[in-house]
Structures are given as structure tokens and as C-alpha cells.
Design a binder for these strands. Sequence first.
RNA 1: GGAGAGAUGGCCGAGUAGGUCGAAGGCGCUCGCCUGCUAAGCGAGUAUACUGGGAAACCGGUAUCGAGGGUUCGAAUCCCUCUCUCUCCGCCA
Length: 422
Amino acid sequence: MLDVKYLRENLEEAETRLSTRNEAVNLSGFKQCDTRRREILQESETLKALRNKVSAEISRIKDKSQAQDQMAEMREVSQRIKALDDVLRDVEDELQSIMLTTPNIPHATTPVGRSEADNVEIRKWGEIPAYSFEPKPHWEIGENLDILDFERGAKLTGARFTLCKGAGARLERALINFMLDLHTGQHNYLEMLPPFMVNRESMTGTGQLPKFEEDLFGLNGLDYFLIPTAEVPVTNIHRGEILKSSELPLRYTAYTPCFRKEAGSYGKDTRGYIRQHQFNKVELVKFTRPEESYRELELLLNDAEKVLQLLELPYRVIELCTADLGFSAAKTYDIEVWLPSQNTYREISSCSNFEDFQARRAAIRFRENDKAKPEFVHTLNGSGLAVGRTVVAILENFQQADGTVRIPAALRPYMGGMEKIG
RNA sequence: GGAGAGAUGGCCGAGUAGGUCGAAGGCGCUCGCCUGCUAAGCGAGUAUACUGGGAAACCGGUAUCGAGGGUUCGAAUCCCUCUCUCUCCGCCA
């Protein structure tokens, strides 16, 4: 959510900057609602002040028969207040709806662009492997090794669900543990294991609701949703709280499965393990002071990159342009891992600074000192990493001519010493 | 699933025959005093949001005692709905 006061005073600037996103943003209703709200509010509160004053007078009159005139007068005042408050509620609902569906303003350093083609490559790491044979796509490798079973996944549930078997299941588990150990042991994050379903307030706090309900799996008869990312429960840990300055920045990491309907992605990545309705992810989340959030974003990005470096997987970092930026983000780096079968880089992590956009929605604040007023923190998060796609990258990058898959050295302790699959 | 109890400020905890209650008291915290250390003691202060005025310091108004409605001139106190927590029984990993 944007700052109402900022919008009030800088509406044109806000509209201009929002227009660099690829969705139409219309703030024409904002000014009207905001003005109307304050008019009604003032009238209502003036009447309430009168009512409070007269009610106090009535309370001092012992013989209530002497207060009939005041009581009759206040009866009318109360009716007027109620009518005003009814209108006020409608106006505030509309204003709130505008505020909750308006995306974040891109940071000044986010490159302006018209489509994902305008994303900017920041750096590359690692050598793209050369093969003496035609590299196979991961789904063939997985099926040949009998570690990824797409047919049975579909039988159990449906399309975009996969059964991991044997070394495939072990590989997922090993990666989760490897990533968590790295982030908690080397990067100073605190491990969390949150609920995998959350309520509507949490989904609103991080920005998935009210606008993107069609992307979420809901629950029958309950107003709970399966989380699409650990960002949601972990960021909402501190919803409605005022944090101590001394505890910032807070760094949390969490493994969770993620559930996404993938609405609007029909026809994309229909084969294989890239785009699933359920996938595992280790997430990094930070709560920082405003002035240090962009430094922390770089560090968070480095923490995510470190996973790929230790796993010896080539990748590149790109910076999303304004048109490709997510709803809540002000700035985002994507990490893309090399996939030989596709001869391209594919997203495996997305690291964003949301500034105070989520903090304002979720009322996450901190106090610089005991006398200072509460300020909104900045929230950040990034995948560290998407586990399923890491499996894909390992299978494809480390496939051997004989059909086996080499396990990178850093992962072997987590695989019971196994050096290759197959 | 059945039965009961409860939800008050950073924490603990008063307050229910409706009326100066934003809310006693205690703890904690902040500032000052005192004590040549420590402990104790004394004084003052210590919620948030919205809103009006002001350059600002700050001053005023409104709201908030789990959430949302209702009754009333007036609700932390009465009524209704919901949420959550705790205890007992049942069931279960």
C-alpha cells in the first residue's frame, strides 16, 4: 500500500511513475474519495464532540427529567452521526479498495521498460557446460533414472503434480537441508517453519489479496489459503507489531512447499518439473530500517547466489524492468540458472525490496528509540532457492553421457555420500 | 466432536445494578534528583491511528478495553454474531 499522504500531495508524480508498469493504473478515484472522506469525517467528528460534551453535562444532572431537552437534541445528533458514518464507511471502503489494488511505485533505479525484453543483465557466473552428446531435458533424465514420476503424479492429483522417487525424493530433501544449513549457519538467518496455510489478513498483508485470488488455492468452507510462497507467513510473523530498533535487521529463512494455481500460464512449461502446482522452496525474508534496505537487498541476492555457486551451477543475475516488476515490489533481481536442454537461463530465484509497501499493509513498524514515533520497516525477500528448479538444473547440467547424473561435491554429505545418481 | 471459562495499555492486573475510564494499582522503560560502587529511595514522564490548526515545537478533535453489529443522551461495562485462548471429556499423529 502506498502512503495516502504521499498520494495526496504527489498524485501526478505517482501516476507517472506507476505508468511505467505494464498495467493501467487509475488513481482518479483516489482524490475524490480522499477529499470526500475528510469532509464527512470532520462533520461527523464535530458532532461527536458535541455529543460527548452534552452527554457529560447530562451525567451531572441528577434529575434526568431536567435533561429531557438535551437528550432529545442528542437523539437527533446521534441519528445524524449514524447517517454520516454509514456514508463514511462506503467512502472508506472504496478508498481502501483503491489503495489495496494499486501496485508499488518502482524504485528510481529500476530500469524503465515496456516488457521483459527490457530486463537488464547484471552479471553472469560459471562456465556453461559443453557436452560431447546431445543434452537431454530433465524430464527424460528423471524418468530414465526413475526418480521423477510425472504419470503417477498426475494420477494421484492431476496435471502439474509430480511424484519424486528414491534418489529424486532424497535430492529434494538434501537440497532443502543444504540450503537451510547454509543460510542459518553461514548467512545468519533464523530458521522458521510456518503454517502452510494462512488467513485472508496475511494474504492481504503481503499483497496476494485482494487482487490475485485466482492464483491461490483456497480451502473448502474455510477462509484459509494454501501459501504460494513462504514470503506470506514469514513476513506476516510481525504483522501488527512494533519492532525494536536493536533487533533490526531481522533475517528469517524458511522451507515450505508452495501452492500456485498458475492461472494464465496455460501452455507454458507443460512438460517436466519447471512449473508445478506444488513445489518446494527455501525462502529468505528480511525486515530492515528504510535506509539500509537496498544494501540488504544486495546481500540477500548474494546469499541466494551462494547456493548456486556451491552447487557449481552457472547462472546470471538480471534486474527486472518496471514492466516486469511484481505488484508489491519496488526493485527485483531475478537469478536465472542455466538449463542446457533449453539452451537458456531460467528463473530460479527472485529477490525483491518491497520498501514499506507490505509493511504499511501489514502494519509492521519499528521504533528508532524509546521516544521516537513508530516507522514502517522495509521488507525484502528472495528465494534461496526454488528447490524443484534446482533439481532440474542439477539433472540437466550434471548429466553424463552414460545417463547418470553427477552430484556436486557440496551436496554429497546430504545425499549420504552418493556421488552420482544412476 | 461435547461441556465450561476467558480475551483490558510493553507486561501483570483492577474495573460489570452504564455516566469526568484512555482506563486504578504494580512491573518494566525514559529523563532528572539522591546515594562516592551496587541495591534501595524520591520526582516527572511513558499507547496507537485518523483528523483540524501551525514553518516547527506543539495545540485541539475523534476513535480504539479480541473483532463486527445493536440498545442508549451516554457502553470496557447491557444484547447479538464472529474469532482466538485456556480447562475437562471424547478422538487422534
